[in-house]
Design a binder for these strands. Structure first.
Lengths: 258, 258
DNA sequence: CGCCGGTTTGAGTCCATTCAAGAGGAGTGG
DNA sequence: CCACTCCTCTTGAATGGACTCAAACCGGCG
């Protein structure tokens, strides 16, 4: 466990500090978490369903995804992760993986031993609270995904996903919400959306023909954000991107219009 | 905020203690959380999407559910909660509700102020860890629901839901896994499963005709658990019902057979 | 150049939906 | 105690969105 140059964990620190007020000691503790860097190539497993997990991983670069396999061989992708996400907090803390975690592109992760995570949350309440928040936001996103596959048609599902990606990629500083890399094959998109690859292909074409998006190879340009968000029934609240929950601003609560 | 007789929070305590080793002070702190009891009648809102939330609620009796509404008016039920569940931890801690929480039956809840929850996790790491666990298990369940609506056909979806209910109801001491109250209308079942009420009706009949279940009014008898679990592609791992994660037993990791 | 994974397109099928109407059950008020 | 109403459940028939199967196309790469 080489604890060499810990500056790579500053990514984690800045993420966590969005959610709680950190003391100097808290920051110090995060930055001195033991970790090792590891690379994975596309499709490689970070964790497999059923595995005992020893590490929590912070995604340093690239994209990763979580998936579950059903009885007939079908696959559901339940989450996509980008730079700065803790990709294995749930599996790591619960101790046993209830789903697969795989690299989508070539990635780099910082592996932190499960015990070190449990220790730091034991000793640093602010860190604990921030990680808990992280988990809560993941949960919120997951509910939205359930809703997406459960109650929207193919076009809305896809539009919704593209909007979510845009905002998250932008928030992570990886591009603009209207033009970003989308390193998913149509088959993987289908597995995110509960559709078949063939139908994803057709649906993409429909969005393109309506001048909502322009597809180039593995990247997307959103030509009309507002109309795409409308088509996707997209409301960004669930992403909790505004980090003002600790000092909740007095703005009027939003309400769905429909 | 009447902090009168705190014995009702022992339900919360016993749940949390499954996930972390509590000291006497930890127990004391949980039991002396301020709360007030409130009743809701069926369909009444505990929280609405977009609301500022001031309380976290512990469900003392009855059933509740979370839902999201989509643009065309459709509803997705994203979780069902039973006695002992914290029904509003996410909304309460994040401070703004990203979905609705409603009573399914007549219910009683213990409302605890958001601030008190934040305080206790600040001062009692074991409590924080236990609540975090609670959230992680919720997240795991949510991933399974996403998978259920995304990648299983109507029959499997319904069978899966019935199995999940059975185990959870049994774990909460409310009945047996093979015979329990199911206070959902077929419309509500449909909204859990991403189906229409009409199709739920037909699918129930299919399960009945295959002698997997027997339906009586608002309750279910599972006649052949193993076959139903097979039909529903059900594997209970994701519920994390075995509370041995803090002292992980050395059993071989489970792997899916398919 | 020829392979190979991914994309595109077409045609036919099917699972679930929609629309519609009737039956059952519980509660209410006359 | 019965009539009435409302809600839920049930069933049928027709429709449709997404799927399956299958073949062709494309672009990158060895």
């Amino acid at each position: 466990m080489a604890s060499s140059d810990n500056s790579r964990l500053s990514l984690l620190l800045s993420k966590l500090e969005k959610w709680a007020e950190f003391s100097g000691a808290d920051r110090e503790a995060v930055l001195s978490l033991p970790y090792k860097i590891r690379s994975y190539s596309p499709a490689q497993y970070i964790a497999r369903d059923g595995d005992r997990t020893e590490y929590c991983s912070l995604l340093l670069s690239g994209y990763a995804y979580r998936s579950k396999i059903v009885g007939d061989g079908g696959r559901q992708i339940v989450a996509i992760h980008i730079k700065g996400d803790m990709v294995d907090l749930q599996n790591g803390v619960l101790g046993i993986a209830d789903h697969n975690v795989q690299a989508l592109t070539a990635i780099e992760v910082a592996l932190m031993p499960r015990g070190a995570i449990l220790d730091i949350v034991q000793q640093h309440p602010a860190v604990a609270r921030a990680m808990w928040h992280e988990t809560l936001v993941d949960g919120s996103t997951q509910r939205e995904w359930t809703t997406n596959v459960g109650r929207r048609d193919a076009q809305a599902r896809l539009a919704h996903l593209l909007c979510e990606f845009g905002l998250r990629v932008e928030a992570a500083g990886l591009g603009s919400r209207t033009h970003y890399d989308l390193p998913l094959t149509q088959e993987q998109l289908a597995d995110c959306l509960g559709l078949t690859p063939v139908h994803v292909n057709r649906t993409l074409k429909v969005l393109d023909r309506q001048n909502l998006i322009t597809r180039t190879l593995r990247s997307v340009r959103i030509d009309d954000w507002d109309r795409l968000a409308g088509a996707g029934d997209f409301n960004s609240t669930y992403l909790h991107l505004d980090s003002n929950s600790r000092a909740l601003d007095p703005a009027t609560p939003m309400r769905l219009s429909a």
